[in-house]
Design a protein around this nucleic acid. Structure first.
Lengths: 208, 208
DNA sequence: CTGCTTTTTTACCATTTGGTAAAGTGACGA
DNA sequence: TCGTCACTTTACCAAATGGTAAAAAAGCAG
C-alpha cells in the first residue's frame, strides 16, 4: 500500500491537513480554468499562497495533484446518481436526479469543468476511474430504469441515452457557461428557467 | 487592412495554398486533441509534415493558426442552424436541425471538440466571434421559434433552452466520446440509437 | 531552554517551447 | 544561363516550466 503523501504513512499533522487542502482547492481553481496542460505549478502555488517547492513538499508532482483532486471529487460527482432510489417513484427519482445534477452545475461549476476537460482530452488520467467507478453505477441505474420501463411505470426509451441527455443538458450550463452567458446576457434567471424547461422536457419523455 | 499571410496581399501560389491547408488540417487534429495550451508547434509541424520554422513562415505564430482555424470552421459550425427555414414546417425544421447537428458530431468530432475546448476555457480567443457570429443567428432563430410557438404550431417552451438542449445533447456524443465509448462498449449502433432517442425526446416537447 | 523533526525558503537546473536569423535550395522567366 | 524571388532548412535563443538540493526557520516534546 503506497501513499500519496510524502510521509510514508498516515501521519497527518494539522499543518499537513491545512496545506494539503489549500493546495487541492487552488488546484481545482486552476485546473478547471486552464485544463491540465494549461495549468502551471506557479499558478497553483500563487493561488494556494505557498511557494512552488513547498507545494512539491506535499505532493509528488503536478500529475499527483491532479489525480488526487480527481479522486477526491469522484464521489461527490457520482453522488446524485447513486442517490437514485429503486424504491422511490420512478418519475420523481429521475426528475430528482436531473435537479440534483442541475444543482451541481450551479454550485460546483469548477468541478464540472474539471471533469469536462479531462473527458475532452480522452480521460488520460481518469480512464481507470471511468471503468471502476462510473461504469458499474451507470449500468446499475440503466438496469433500474429499464425495469421501471418494463413495468410500464415509465414510457419506454433507451435508458442509456436518457442518462446521457440528462448529463449533457445539465452540465451544459456549467461547462459552456461562457457561451450561455453571452447568449442570455441580462437574464438573471437562467438557471431557474433551465430547470423549468428541463423538468417539462424530461417529464414529457418519461410519462407513460 | 492587414493579412494573416506573410505575403502582404492575396498572392496565393499553389504551394502556399497546399501548405496552409496542411497546417490547418494538422492544427485541427492537434488542437482538438490537446486544447490550445496543450498543443505544441512541434506536434503541429510533425502532423503537417513540415518543419517548425516552415510553419512559422506561413503563419505569424501559434495563436494566429488557432484563430485562423476557428474562423475557418465557424461558418461550417453555424451552417446547420442557419439552414433552419422560416417557411418550413416548424417540427420538421427543428428536428431537422437536431439531425444535422448529430451528423456534425458524427462526422466532425474534432471540430466539435475544438470549439468545446475553446468555450470551456472561457472562449479567450473567440469572444468576439460569439458576439458577432453566433449571437445574431441565435437571436434570429429564437425569435423564429418563439413565433412558431405563439402561432400554436409548437408547444410553448423557452426557445433559448430548447436550442441549448439540442446543442448539449448532440455535441455530447462528440465531446464526451471518451466517456460514452466506455459506457457503450460493444454497441455498434450508438449514433443511430442516440438519433432515434433524441428524435422522440424533442418530438414530445415540441408537438403542440 | 534544548535538541530533534517538520516545514519553508533560496538558489538552482534541465527540458520544453514559441519564436528568429540567416544561410541554403529550388523554380522559373528573361 | 543567369538572376530573382519563393520556399526550406540549420542553428540558435530567451522565457517558461516542472522539479531538486540544501540551507534556514519554525514547531514541539522533553
Amino acid at each position: 500500500m503506497t501513499s500519496y503523501s510524502p510521509v510514508p504513512e498516515k501521519k497527518h499533522s494539522r499543518i499537513q491537513l491545512r496545506n494539503r487542502k489549500r493546495i487541492i482547492d487552488a488546484a481545482l481553481e486552476v485546473f478547471s480554468q486552464h485544463g491540465y496542460r494549461g495549468a502551471t505549478l506557479d499558478q497553483i502555488a500563487e493561488q494556494a499562497g505557498l511557494s512552488k517547492p513547498n507545494i512539491l513538499y506535499y505532493f509528488d508532482g503536478k500529475e499527483a495533484i491532479h489525480v488526487t483532486l480527481l479522486n477526491k471529487l469522484m464521489e461527490t460527482w457520482l453522488d446524485p446518481l447513486a442517490k437514485m432510489d429503486p424504491d422511490g417513484d420512478p418519475l420523481d427519482e429521475i426528475l430528482g436526479y436531473m435537479h440534483r445534477k442541475m444543482q451541481m452545475s450551479r454550485k460546483f461549476p469548477r468541478e464540472s469543468r474539471l471533469f469536462a476537460n479531462e473527458i475532452l482530452q480522452g480521460a488520460p488520467r481518469m480512464g481507470p476511474h471511468l471503468e471502476s467507478g462510473l461504469k458499474p453505477l451507470f449500468e446499475e441505474k440503466v438496469a433500474l430504469i429499464q425495469s421501471w420501463m418494463d413495468d410500464g411505470k415509465l414510457a419506454a426509451s433507451d435508458p442509456r441515452h436518457l442518462i446521457f441527455s440528462i448529463w449533457a443538458t445539465t452540465q451544459h450550463y456549467a461547462d459552456f457557461e461562457a457561451q450561455v452567458s453571452v447568449l442570455t446576457k441580462g437574464d438573471k434567471a437562467v438557471f431557474p428557467g433551465a430547470e423549468a424547461y428541463l423538468d417539462t422536457l424530461f417529464r414529457k419523455v418519461l410519462e407513460p
